[in-house]
Amino acid sequence: MTTTNAPARAGQAIGRMLLQGGTVVALLLLIIFFFAMRPDIFLTFVNVKNILYQVSILAIIAGAQTVVMVVGDFDLSVGATSSLAGAVAGAQMIGGAPIWQAISVALLVGLIVGLVNGVLIAYLNLTAFVATLATMTSVVGFAFLVTEGTTLFNFPAEFNELGQGKFLNIPIPVYFALVISVIIWAVLKFTTIGRSWHAIGGNVEVSRLSGVNVRRARLLAFTVAGLVSAIGGILLAARLGSASAVQGSDNMMFSVAAVFLGMTVIKSGMANLGGTMIGVGIIGVMSNGLNILGVNAYIQQVVTGIIIILAVTLSGLKTRER
C-alpha cells in the first residue's frame, strides 16, 4: 500500500510546492521572459532603477492596503486619500506654509480619513465596502475642493526633492518605500497589535472570545492605512511636482491586486507584506517590460488582468486540493 502511494505523494508534494510558489514563479518567469527578450536592457541598472521608481508609491499604498486586508477588511479609499493628502500638502505650500507644516497637515488629513473609516467600520458596524466606498467618494470631492479642480504646482524645490531627488543614484521614494515596507512588516510580525490583526483576520469571533480588543484593533488598522496612504500621496505630489484631485487614482485597484497576489504566496492565504511586495513587483515588471517591448497600452491592460487571474487561480487550486 505505502510503496505504491509513495511516488504519488512525492509528485503531489512537488505539485503543491509549484502551486504554492505560483506567484513567485510567475514573477521569476516574467523577469526571465523580459530579460530573454531584451537582455541588453531589462536588467540594466537604469531600467531596474526605473522599475523601482515607478512602483515605489504603489508599494507604499499597497502596504497600507495590506494592513487592512490582514484584518480581513479592505479599503477602497486609499487612492483617494493619497490624492487628497498630496493636494492638501500642495495647497498649503502654495499658500505659503512651510514644508514641514504642509506635510504634517497632509499626514493629519490622511490619519483623520483613516480614523473615520475605522469608526464607521469598527464601531458603527458598517461593512468595509460601504464605508470606504462612501469615504472614497467624499474624499475625492474634498480633493476637488482643495485643488479647485485644477492641478496645483510650483512647490518649493526642497519638497519636490523628496520625490525627485536621488541618494546614491537611486530615487528617494524607493528608500521611502523600503523603509515603510520594513516598518509595516515589523509591526505586523513583532507587535501585539500586528498579531491581533492577524488573529482577527483569521477569525473575528474566536479573537473576541479570547479577549482581543477587536474594535480598537480594526480602528487602528484603518487609521494606519489612512496615514500610510497619505505618505504615498505626498510623495506622489513631490515626485510629479504637482497635485491634482485624481492623480494616483489607479493605485487603489493596483494595491488590492498586489495584496491579492501576495495572499497566494503563503500557506495560510492571508495578506502579508512580503507577498504584497511580490505582487507590486509583478505589476511593476509587467508594465515596464511590456513598455520596453513596445506593447500597445490596451493590450498591456488586458495582459495585466490575465496575469492576476492566472496567479490567483493557481493558488486557488492549492487551497481547493485537500
Binding site: T191, T192, R195, S196, H198, A199, G201, G202, N203, E205, V206, S207, L209, S210, G211, V212, S268, G269, M270
Partner: peptide, 21 residues
C-alpha cells in the same frame, strides 16, 4: 469557534492578553 486557522499553533495558544510583550 475554537481556533484561528491562519495563525500558528503557538499564537493560538497565547492569544489576546496572553501574548507576552
Amino acid at each position: 469557534l475554537s481556533i484561528i486557522p491562519s495563525i500558528s499553533v503557538a499564537e493560538n495558544i497565547m492569544l489576546g492578553e496572553q501574548t507576552p510583550s
